[in-house]
Structures are given as structure tokens and as C-alpha cells.
Simulated scan of single mutants.
Amino acid sequence: MNLQTAHSSKPRVAVHKFSSCDGCQLSFLNLGEALLTLAERIDLVHFAEAGPLDPDTGVDVAFVEGSVSTPEDLERIQRIRAHSGLLIAIGACATSGGIQGLRNQAKDAEWVAQIYSHPEAIASLERSTPISSHVKVDFELWGCPVSGPQMLAVINALLLGVTPRDNVDKVCTECKRQGYPCVMVTHGIACMGPVTRAGCGALCPSLGRDCYGCYGPAENANTDALAIQFSHLGLMPEAIVRRFQSINSQAPVFLAAADKLRTDAHD
């Protein structure tokens, strides 16, 4: 996996947006000077948020933000995949359906009617789904949003011909490395850190707040044990379900944990 091209020109890169809030694209733009330096090494041919527009051009790598939520999204992701050497999904929406994936638990017609005065004008798929549900994804970068340095590290790895590192460590490991006290142990705060992948620098725990699971499930996430701990901290079953059914609600590990909690509550 690399950005080495068969031609002498710089690798061609595109950044595409689907159903999302633009946060991951903004993280890329917020690199500032580092982005200008990167622009000397790659040819950024499509990035609507930054200016260049050429959505159907062939590229060496395409970064895709957002979930597939509309019929138009479904058609467009197929075109992007066909025109891209590598496709990298960035952010919670692209990797797990995002916050809009919460509607997957609702009856489609009902929630649309509750929000829009003319629901018949809304064209949406029954479910909000990650990019990998529809096309081959070569690498996933989790986070809500991803950080600029994360994206920069991925591109630099590809330029060197190295497979990017998938950080599946837990947020707890970042807290330990930084010397942050565990908010669950010291303050009795229900924290998703034990089951959430690292990458944010343990931002919330560094401020004495609990992790909300923005970066999705970590490797070997023991959701059963964490749910029991949350119960010991006084959270009711439905409150624990909401912890897993948040930003990455459709990530299989978190979805399974929420379903099990609901089932156990009704038994």
C-alpha cells in the first residue's frame, strides 16, 4: 500500500464528503503550514472544502468522509471507488455510520415526519452505513473527528511505501503514558476509555472528563465488563445502552453490546 505512481508526476489525491458534519475535512485543513508543505509532495486534485473541484477524476488515493445515507451517496461511492487506486475512510461517519446511524434504530417514516414538514421531499436510504458496507476500503482512520496529524501520518506512510499504522490501543493506555489519573477510579465517572481506541491523546480524561467513545471500539474491547462496572457506578441499563449507542453506534462491537444490554434488561 503506497502512493508511488507509474508516472513521474506527484501522486494525485482527492478528499470527498458524504453525509457528515465536515469535521474531519476541517481537521485536515487545520494542519496549516504542514498542509502547504504536503501540497509540494502531492497533487490535491479534488477537495471541495479547500477549493479544487474534480470529483470524477482518477486519483492515486481518495479520502472519504461521511456515511452512505442517500441513493445519490450510493451511486457516488461506486464511482469514486472505480476512479481511485486506494480508498481511505476517515472519521466515525465513514467507518461506522456516525451519529446519523442512530436513526437505524428508528422507524424511517416516523422520524422523517417528525423532523420535516414535507417528508415526501426527503430521499434517504433506510439505513446510514459506513463506506465499507458498499465498496472495498483499503484503510480506515477512526475518530470524531480524526486529527490532522493522523491524516498527515497516513499520507507520509503511503509516500514512503509503508502501510499506515492502525492504532487499536485503548484510551486507557494514553492516559497511563501521559500520567493522567483514571477518572473512573478517582472520581467514579463512567468512562468509555477501557473499550475505546486511542488516537485522541486522551483529550477528555486530560481535562478530568470521561471518554465518550469518539474513536470507536479498541481491539479486544471487553464491553461486558465495562457495562458491569457502569452498573456498579449507578448507571441504569438504558443509560449504559446510550453510552454504546452514541457517535459510533453502528460499530459492530458497540452495537452488539447495546443489543445485549437491551435483551438482558427485558429478561
Rank of each mutant, 00 (worst) to 15 (best):
N2P: 10
H7P: 02
H7Y: 15
K10W: 05
R12F: 04
A14D: 07
A14L: 11
H16T: 08
C24I: 15
Q25L: 10
F28V: 01
L29E: 07
L31C: 11
E33R: 08
A34L: 15
L36E: 12
T37P: 02
A39H: 10
G51K: 08
G51R: 04
P55S: 10
T57R: 14
V64E: 00
S67G: 11
S69E: 13
P71G: 12
L74K: 09
E75K: 10
I77Q: 02
H83R: 14
L87A: 04
I88A: 07
A89T: 01
C93M: 03
S96C: 12
Q100I: 11
G101Q: 05
R103A: 15
Q105A: 13
K107R: 12
W111Q: 03
Q114E: 15
Q114K: 15
Y116P: 06
S117P: 03
P119T: 06
A121G: 10
L125N: 04
R127I: 06
H134N: 11
V135M: 06
D138P: 01
L141A: 00
W142D: 03
G143Y: 00
P145R: 03
V146E: 00
S147I: 03
V154D: 05
G161C: 13
T163S: 08
R165S: 14
D169C: 00
K170L: 03
T173N: 08
T173A: 13
C175P: 08
C182W: 04
M184C: 10
H187G: 12
M192C: 07
R197A: 04
A198I: 05
G199I: 01
A202F: 01
L203M: 13
L203C: 08
C211L: 04
C211F: 00
N220S: 14
N220T: 07
N220H: 15
D224L: 12
Q229W: 04
S231D: 13
H232V: 11
L233K: 10
L235Y: 06
A239Y: 07
V241K: 00
V241F: 01
V241G: 00
Q250L: 02
A251P: 00
A251L: 02
P252W: 10
V253S: 06
D259N: 09
D267P: 00
